[in-house]
Write a protein that binds this DNA or RNA. Structure first.
Lengths: 221, 221
DNA sequence: GATAATATTTAGGCTTATCTAAAAATATAT
DNA sequence: ATATATTTTTAGATAAGCCTAAATATTATC
């Protein structure tokens, strides 16, 4: 079984490991984990000895199959707990991150499988992120961002890229929630912002930054 | 905020602090915490500096008001989580202790208050132990043990003194569960065992040890 | 009330996970 | 291709929480 610190490192590596070939850098890990590069190096050595990562000095890291399994299990737990907090305990989607960050480290396979079932085996969490199943399979869908839509297109909000509570609270205030139907009224080329309408209500403007942090799914009009 | 180790010490002191006047001994704490007396002494110094306990060398410890508050909050969390696990996730009462032991250290007042409400503000957990409320008040009832009943008395099972899973599993096998109605058919003086019937079914014998670990409430016949 | 038994504390170490400062390796730029 | 900048690692500390062994208090016993 892994320590809390180990699990957090594995999760961080998992999340930063986008570009397949290149390893995750020590500095980026330090930043993601709010720690110092020297601390990261120490831990990488430890994780490497435990065969949880593939690590060569100065070359960055990647997860081993074993490490990836652990990371995905932590992500699964995090997202299931977030779902529980929002769906059952009626927390706002902007309030659950820190609590799930703790709950994701509870060790009990039976607990998490029962929780999964209790919640109705959800595929996506309250932020629209996919929830890995027991076997580690992750529901996928093509990632389309509001920014990519053009005038008159209709779409449904299905997720957020930025999970900061300030962003989530801003969206809530605008009624931009998961499932909301969004119509692009106009694209303003000058600052790449968009005038949009949610569920056919009063139109308003969203900045490029907001548009590129919203995952959507096109729907026929 | 307190560390996991601190919380476990405070909880252990709380549970061992039965005899008001005398302090809890270093050795008993070491045993309860599965550690060594030397380790306990170290931690007692730390807790004392933090004003969580009243400690004088060689004299044992008692919780300060501040420490008691923390301990009761941990107990509250433990018992609410156990209730959640049994009531909502359908765990057996013999399976929840270790998981609750982890969950009790999740830090979030809002979480625990929402959980409390979600569960319907229960007064007792799946083992019949009282759940402290938000303010720290603990539901009480006089503690009557099956052992104290005499021939022909009727009672309802309301709790267990021993929380070991072997005991709980044994009880489950006998259909001795919370709420079950138990009738004392006969008291055998020789070994102080009792012949009893549960919910008017086939009578069987319970040893003195079992009888003294079962909390009951008398009911009129 | 002295001595033996028991309980507790102190002293000194160990491990995990951090850190800072300095050294070494790699990447960048002219 | 060499100097400079950046990144990463090493060296040496630190704090929390635990340990064993030895020293010291307290309690029990005769």
């Amino acid at each position: 079984m892994n320590t809390l610190a180990e699990e957090n490192y594995l999760k961080a590596i998992y999340k930063l490991d986008t570009n397949e070939k290149i390893g995750v850098s020590t500095n980026s890990l330090a930043e993601a984990l709010n720690s110092k590069p020297a601390s990261v190096t120490d831990m990488l050595k430890k994780l490497s000895e435990k065969k949880l990562i593939n690590y060569r000095k100065y070359q960055g890291v990647n997860l081993s199959a074993k490490g990836k399994k652990v990371a995905i299990r932590v992500v699964r737990k995090h997202r299931l707990w977030e779902t529980f907090l929002v769906q059952q305990l009626k927390f706002g989607w902007d309030q659950v991150h820190d609590i799930a960050e703790q709950l994701e480290h509870i060790h009990s396979d039976e607990l998490i499988d029962r929780l999964d079932e209790f919640l109705g085996n959800p595929n996506f969490d309250p932020h629209g992120d996919p929830i890995p199943d027991k076997a580690g399979n992750i529901p996928s869908r093509k990632e389309l961002v509001l920014d990519e839509l053009v005038k008159n297109e209709l779409a449904q909000v299905i997720g957020v890229k930025d999970h900061s509570s300030s962003f989530l609270q801003y969206l809530t205030g605008l009624k931009v929630e998961l499932g909301a139907v969004i119509k692009v009224i106009e694209h303003i080329e000058y600052d790449r912002s968009k005038k949009v309408a949610i569920n056919n209500n009063e139109p308003f403007t969203l900045s490029e930054q907001v548009c590129s942090n919203l995952y959507v799914k096109r729907i026929k009009k």
